[in-house]
Nucleic acid binder design. Structure first.
Length: 181
DNA sequence: GGAACGATCTGC
DNA sequence: CAGATCGTTCCC
């Protein structure tokens, strides 16, 4: 199958159901391409979500249409990237937690200042791909600088499932999904 | 107006 | 294991 930008309609379901279907899709910025291998689901009725207490200037993109990129600053230092899911008004998204580098590895190494551990964390992958807060709100279904691409690789039949990490509320909700191995 | 708290990463 | 580092949110 020829690589195509992701079908926005496939993002309209509930965040925890959509999240595992995003595994093995490609995130593209310029020459840099990474395969999504770990994600977490967040939604508005979820105390761990940025949207739990309603819309604010920071999280407004999460209340917009699906297929857009929600970027935020974490711990005052890192940028993290989410794919907005559900219909407008839902306040749901899928956090991209890890990528496997596919192309543009030299550029990723240069941005990261190291040769390994390029994109195995939500802050690391944004640095590797050059995703910043300036990309908040861009349409991943195109046209735009950052794209979500389906190259025909299916998601794993049985993803690894577990609790989300780095949060203090909703810690028992198993909405973290990974490609096995 | 101010203080507390992170959906993290790195180096010690 | 603790420091870095700063925007967002909430409370006074």
């Amino acid at each position: 199958m020829r690589p195509v930008t992701f079908d926005r309609g496939a993002l309209l379901g509930e965040s925890p159901e959509v999240a595992p279907t995003l595994l093995n899709k490609l995130l593209v910025h310029g020459a840099c391409v990474g395969r999504i291998v770990e994600v977490e689901a967040y939604r508005a009725d979820d105390p761990a979500s940025h949207t739990f207490r309603g819309e604010t200037p920071r999280n407004s993109v999460m209340f917009g249409p699906p297929g857009h990129l929600y970027c935020y600053r974490s711990y005052g230092i890192h940028t993290c990237a989410n794919i907005v899911t559900g219909p407008p008004g839902d306040g749901a998204a899928v956090l991209i937690r890890a990528l496997v580098p596919v192309a543009g590895v030299d550029e990723m190494r240069r941005r990261r200042g190291r040769s390994t551990g390029l994109a195995d964390g939500p802050g690391k992958l944004c640095q590797a791909l050059g995703i910043t807060l300036a990309h908040n709100g861009v349409d991943l279904c195109g046209p735009g600088p950052v794209l979500l691409v389906d190259d025909g690789t299916p998601p794993p039949g049985v993803p690894l499932v577990g609790p989300r990490v780095g949060i203090t509320k909703g810690v028992d909700t198993p909405w973290r999904f990974r490609v096995p191995q």
